[in-house]
Amino acid sequence: MGDGKRVYLTKEQILTDLRDGMADAVDLGDIPELSGDELDKLMDIITMPSRMVGVEAGMEVPVTHDIGTIRLDGDQGNSGVGIPSSRLVGCMVHERAFGADTMELGHIDYSFKPVKPVIAQEMQTMEVCQQNMIIPLLYGAMPNMGLYYTPDGPFENPGDLMKAFKIQEAQESMEHAAKHLTRDIVWIMQRMMASGADGVNFDTVGAAGDGDMYASLHAIEALRKQYPDMYIEAGMAGELMLGLHGEMAYDGTVLAGLWPHQQAPLVAKAGANIFGPVVNTNTSKSFAWNLGRAVTFVKAAVKASPIPCHVNMGMGVGGIPMLETPTIDAVSRASKAMVEIANVDGI
């Protein structure tokens, strides 16, 4: 199930769920269906008797990471396993023990804004990591525009303003927050680039709605202008760009209501090298329903994207159950399906 619980379904039930999940994506995104062959292949992948599956030889793809080393040293009640270790150790474990193709360095709070007071620490950690590592090492953080609103930030909370029917004031608050977020991301990444970072990973773009995406796209644009060779990956927070502002646009396109295949060209236009499409998992539906839906959305995004797509496949996205210890049989099958059917360039 979408929450990770093991259930037993007949072949007919699995096929029905695959088709229903696919149909939901087709209906919402106005995108093409999977072919009969692709549905058959999905069915084969899901019903393989082995615990783990793998892509066919030659179809392997590079992987990129969100959350950095926090999954090793994090110990705050999430999926971190609380191993006391430095971030250098965490990065090197990923490179040399896990066989990671790339890695990212991230701050324990993992949003851009709280990096500002500890920027010197981040810069020196990046320098030390770059001296020791060989795989590409990005600096990763969440734009997380919510931190710019009261009580955490300087601008009045748009939610409170909207409740008081102050719609224009709410929009203005989002516009101000977006400008500050863009400025902060650029400021932080200028310093990380001075410290030898390969680039940046924007994790969960749009988590605070269209203003969050607006700010991120402008930060990407500014960084690309200043650093033509910088690696920029932008992964989304959700499948649908929520229109909290409703009228914010980039390159003439209103951001509210965009689906993954519509988000990809804008992220490329801003100057990113890699786009990370997201499809949310419905915990009340089966793995087959969620995977059929996710593969349909992501296949359309990969086709529409002018840049490589590394699909987001953490817990609760990309067909993967919403569980801090994601079930290996489901992760493995979802991973294979995204590579072999959605044709992703990476995960």
Partner: peptide, 22 residues
């Protein structure tokens, strides 16, 4: 990839689909 414990997330994805890094 994203959030999840090391065995369930990076190790499983890398074993299934990754290129094994260096």
């Amino acid at each position: 990839m994203g959030v999840g414990d090391p065995m369930g997330m990076p190790i499983t994805h890398i074993m299934t689909s990754g290129m094994s890094g260096i």
